[in-house]
Design a protein around this nucleic acid. Structure first.
Lengths: 158, 158
DNA sequence: GACAACTCGGACATCTGTTGTCCGAAACAG
DNA sequence: CTGTTTCGGACAACAGATGTCCGAGTTGTC
């Protein structure tokens, strides 16, 4: 699992509380991470259509839709790629005791088990929205936390 | 996700049907994969205590316990490592707006969401045993499939 | 009891994917 | 129109996975 997923999720939560575009460099400052690498993750979010990038003098990133409509799975797939983590090599069709192709109309039992597990994983991530995360943050660190971060981002909290 | 997991699972299913030790080289022949690399995966299974290795002239690998008691999760953790795929970097405690340590007694919301999803994934893998996989194989390719493979392994099916 | 053959086990290269960095293209504000 | 600020994709460095090899140990045989 790519470590950039964590950064992207934190950025999405932060972007919940702002209405003005926020540059990638500012987000990197806030989290004390590499600005160049964070930019790459934000590009992935932009490509996936989760955030909208505006260029120019007062540019930056903004969420494209309501945080309620952005799931954690969306972010994970945008950054880590949509493909399943487990890929079946179909080794049942190889070797001296290979299964005949006409018997391989459905995925093999091992592939089914792994795919089923990944499906539950995806369902769990799909059931949590970025808005839920933001709500939990407020609950964990006190109401007004995100408002404070938003203020820091807007003003020159350098 | 390591691709060797697939190999290890296939080997465990095959080992279901044998009582004599099977060398790694023979298993590699059966699946038409690299013998040296498969040996590494089997070593991991041995280290985890899922299979027992016997050396010497008629040596090889055997399951240490009934296939009913070996879950898919056991194999995945043995080969891929037990650690969670997502590791929280605690970036909430970094940067100018860092959360105070006394507020960080519990994992952050993002970490909780990811951990919960992984927990469901693990539960799904834990609910499937190697015996279940063997049963599915018999159901998919006809009863007696594993017996045929066992015979090929035992006799010099070269 | 000694020998020989066969097996596993860990140490050694190679290679793809992630991590990290940089500069050019585009766009907004003045 | 120009300068500044921003994103976007192309370019290296590193790590883990992939693949390979030979030595230590054990078993069966003579």
């Amino acid at each position: 699992m790519s470590g950039g997923v964590e950064w992207a999720l934190h950025c999405c939560v932060v972007l919940t509380s702002v209405t003005e575009p926020v540059p990638a460099a500012r987000l990197a400052q806030l989290h004390a991470v590499s600005p160049s690498y964070l930019a790459k993750q934000l590009q992935a979010l932009s490509r996936a259509g989760l955030v909208r990038s505006v260029q120019g003098n007062a540019g930056g990133y903004v969420l494209t839709r309501s945080p309620e409509l952005i799931t954690v799975l969306d972010v994970v797939e945008a950054v880590d790629g949509p493909g399943p983590a487990f890929s079946c090599t179909e080794i049942r069709q190889r070797g001296p005791m290979a299964a005949p192709p006409q018997s391989c109309t459905v995925p093999c039992a091992i592939s089914r088990a792994m795919a089923g597990a990944e499906a539950t994983w995806r369902d769990a991530l799909r059931s949590v929205s970025v808005a839920d995360l933001a709500r939990d943050v407020e609950s964990d660190y006190g109401s007004g936390t995100l408002a404070g971060i938003s203020a820091w981002l807007g003003t020159g909290g350098r």
